[in-house]
């Protein structure tokens, strides 16, 4: 296997792992590392690495936006004392968060298999060469 392809695969796995870490065990901190890596590698020679980087970076941004904006709006207009608002918040958060985690799990499996993958619906466009 050529060296550039190997490093591309390793980077792709690292990006997916950071994306998942941001969602699961180290929120914000893992994203900040991903942010640094994004600026370091956005022009990387491997399309595999670039594709996983763009998927994880933009989906992290969009995912955070989807989670916090909608939850914020629900609380803003519904207040904290309504059981129905709490129901929608918990259900919404659980669905969105677990969907984002599942995307990451499938993305990680694709990265491990040396394959590009576009996250369904919210994923960024794949780079050329994928």
């Amino acid at each position: 296997m050529p060296r550039s392809q190997t490093s591309g695969r390793e980077l792709a796995i690292l990006f997916e792992a950071l994306y998942l870490a941001n969602l699961l065990i180290a929120p914000v901190m893992a994203f900040l590392i991903l942010l640094v890596l994004y600026f370091q590698n956005k022009n990387h020679s491997s399309p595999l690495a670039r594709s996983h980087l763009s998927q994880t970076f933009y989906t992290s941004l969009l995912g955070g936006f989807l989670v916090f904006l909608v939850v914020g709006v629900l609380f803003l207009f519904g207040g904290f004392d309504s059981p129905y608002i709490w129901m929608w918040v918990v259900l919404y958060f659980t669905i969105i968060h677990s969907t984002l985690v599942l995307f990451g799990a499938l993305g990680l499996a694709k990265a491990m298999s040396n394959q590009c993958w576009r996250y369904p619906i919210i994923g960024a466009k794949l780079p050329k060469g994928c």
Partner: peptide, 14 residues
């Protein structure tokens, strides 16, 4: 269970 998901999809991808 998370590993099972990655495992299953990884094997099918390969």
């Amino acid at each position: 269970f998370f590993m099972m998901t990655v495992f299953a999809f990884n094997m099918v991808n390969k």
